[in-house]
Each structure stands twice: as structure tokens, then as C-alpha cells.
């Protein structure tokens, strides 16, 4: 099937228990419109793969509050106190992965690799039970690829071929996650015709994208408003 422009049917068709990747770092570059649709559809027992778990009142936090998430695979969850409470009560499962290993496991999945050896986490709990290998005098631990059924990504601009462009620090995990799922749903702030993005500026080529659509509204919350007064 060719590229589609309406996410509603695909998101409504996601089964309970699916594994879904969601791009973003903190609140920056998160797929807020696709999260809203998933919230409406109400699937349960989801595994969400995302760097963070949103905050109590926004992002993935909304899905957690709605009881849709069984497991998070993340690198840092410190900004969500609801999740902390559920974790203490044993009502949600959390797998914590070092951030570079997390990114590379996702990349390996998208790039068709069976895993890789990394120096990260050697000698720590992260390496417990995993194969290690010495290469040129340095110890590495084996990490497996991290796949998903769906990826929800967010880009600044998308064209009707599914090519995506990300502004400033919004690329983060979006581009790599777009590669790693069976189906990738991309919401964009601006949808343009093919040719509307300079070919050299495409970050995610459209072959990785199954649905591209213009988000209805983007709240784009700022997690920590830090600024200087003009004279500093």
C-alpha cells in the first residue's frame, strides 16, 4: 500500500499489547497528535518505547494516567511522578536502558543488524547476564536490536512522499525510530507537496514512513523555561 495521509484508521487498528515507539526528548519533538488519537482509541497493555515518559499532565503521561501502558522502555523517567507511584505499587513495568545504547539498539533494528558490542555499561547492572567480548584490550557488552510494531514520530515539515525534516533539537529519537517499526506514523507541523523540502535537507527519507499527516494543533510545551535577563 502507498503512503496514507489519514492516521485515524491505522491508530484505531492498533491491537492491545502492541509495542509503540514514540519520538521526542522530554516534551521536545513529541508526537502529541498521535498520542491524542491513541488516547481516544483506548488500547490497553501497551509497551511504549520512548526516551522519557512524559510529565504528569502531558505527552506519554496522558496514556499512563489513562491506564493504557503496561510497560515503558526508557532511559530516564524522573519527570513523571504518576509513573513513579505506579512503579512503586507494581502496576507498571519499566526497563531502563543507557541512552546511547537505547538509540543504537533502535538504529540496529532499523538497519537490519542482529545487535552490536558497546563499551557502555560494562561492569554495571546493565551488563548482567549479557555476553561480553574483549576486542583490542577493551571489554564490550552485546546489545540486541530494539524493534517495535509502530513508531509515532513528529517532524517540523513533511512532504507527500513522507520525506521529513526536523528543526533544531526536535530530531532526537524521531529519525531513528522511523526506521525501526513495522509501521511509522509521522505527524508534521507543515505538510507540503513533493519537492517542498530540498532533497539535501531530508532527514528521514519517505521510504521509512507509512502515514504522514498535518497535526491539528501543537501545544509544544516547554518543560523548563530558562532565560536570561537582557543585560546578562
Amino acid at each position: 500500500m502507498g503512503i496514507q495521509y489519514d492516521p485515524a484508521a491505522m491508530i484505531a487498528g492498533i491491537p492491545d499489547g502492541a509495542r509503540i515507539m514514540m519520538g521526542g526528548f522530554g516534551m521536545c519533538g513529541i508526537p502529541e497528535n498521535s498520542i491524542a488519537l491513541l488516547l481516544e482509541s483506548g488500547q490497553k497493555n501497551l509497551t511504549i518505547v520512548s526516551n522519557n515518559a512524559g510529565v504528569d499532565t502531558f505527552g506519554i503521561g496522558l496514556l499512563i494516567n489513562n491506564g493504557q501502558v503496561r510497560k515503558m522502555i526508557s532511559t530516564y523517567i524522573g519527570e513523571n511522578t504518576v509513573l513513579e507511584k505506579l512503579l512503586i505499587e507494581g502496576r507498571i513495568e519499566v526497563d531502563l536502558v543507557p541512552q546511547g545504547t537505547f538509540a543504537e539498539r533502535i538504529r540496529a533494528a532499523g538497519a537490519g543488524l542482529g545487535g552490536f558490542f558497546t563499551p557502555t555499561g560494562v561492569g554495571t547492572v546493565v551488563a548482567d547476564g549479557k555476553e561480553t567480548r574483549e576486542l583490542n584490550g577493551k571489554t564490550y557488552v552485546f546489545e540486541e536490536p530494539l524493534h517495535a510494531d509502530y513508531a509515532f514520530v513528529k517532524a517540523s515539515v513533511g512532504d507527500r512522499k513522507g520525506n521529513l525534516f526536523y528543526r533544531k533539537t526536535t530530531q532526537n529519537f524521531n529519525a531513528v525510530m522511523a526506521m525501526a517499526a513495522k509501521k511509522t506514523i509521522a505527524e508534521v507541523e507543515q505538510l507540503v507537496d513533493a519537492g517542498g523540502i530540498e532533497p539535501e535537507s531530508v532527514h528521514t527519507p519517505g521510504l521509512f514512513v507509512d502515514v504522514v499527516y498535518q497535526g491539528a494543533n501543537f501545544e509544544k510545551r516547554i518543560e523548563k523555561r530558562t532565560y536570561r535577563t537582557a543585560d546578562r
Binding site: 526528548f25 522530554g26 516534551m27 521536545c28 519533538g29 526516551n51 519527570e79 541512552q99 537505547f102 538509540a103 543504537e104 533502535i106 538504529r107 517540523s156 526536523y166 528543526r167 533544531k168 533539537t169 526536535t170 530530531q171 532526537n172 529519537f173 524521531n174 529519525a175 531513528v176 532527514h203 509544544k220 510545551r221 516547554i222 518543560e223 523548563k224 523555561r225 530558562t226 532565560y227
Partner: peptide, 25 residues
């Protein structure tokens, strides 16, 4: 302040001449 431009502490920051952006991988 730009919600598209944050540091790893999730704080709003600015860019400098010669800055570059890339993915987490």
C-alpha cells in the same frame, strides 16, 4: 525561548554561530 531548542536538562537554550543539530544515534 523556543520549544524546539532545549538541552539535555530540558531547559530552553540558544544556538551559536557554527552550531549543528543531529539525531540521538
Amino acid at each position: 525561548m523556543n520549544p524546539d531548542l532545549i538541552n539535555a536538562g530540558k531547559e530552553t537554550i540558544s544556538e551559536t554561530p557554527g552550531s549543528s543539530y543531529f539525531g540521538s544515534d
